[in-house]
Amino acid sequence: MVFDVSTDSRNEVQSDWGSMEQRMAQRLRRIFGHSLNIRHIDVGSCNACESEVLSLSNPYYNFHRLGLFFTASPRHADVLLVTGAMTHAMEDVLLTTYTAMPQPRLVVATGVCAIHGGLFRESPEFAGPVDTTIPVDAYIPGCPPTPYAIINGILQAVDRRKGKKPC
């Protein structure tokens, strides 16, 4: 495999869904103390990434059993999931939302538009990749990325906090 997956799968072939959930819950509890709350913000997307993000909560992917939940207020959030090519209008809003989050906080840039600009890179409204405004912990390429990739990206971001102090 060329690209990163959850580091554990290198050594063990996980066919047991249940144990993955268990390890996920343990890891989340150790770092965050509770289930992971994700706040999604759309800084200028075409809504394809939003479709994929929304489908995370449908029965096929069902990310709730992993302990991942959407939340409305950034004050309650641990992860900021950013989708879309950042426009000038949403730059300040993105920064305000990020500042409103309490630490520890993670940012996951979802979709090629958030990472690089994608098709909209030449547009006059495009204000740059998301990591020019706020620090990003994980990148999920794809146009749009699959829900599996989004889960993977969130796990990657959580992995980065492993071993660090609360804040």
Binding site: P74, T96, T99, A100, C167
Partner: peptide, 17 residues
């Protein structure tokens, strides 16, 4: 106090502060 404290503006939806 295990957590650092910082003062932030009130959250009012992000767009119209």
């Amino acid at each position: 106090r295990p957590f650092r404290r910082r003062a932030v503006a009130a959250w009012s939806g992000g767009r119209y502060n």
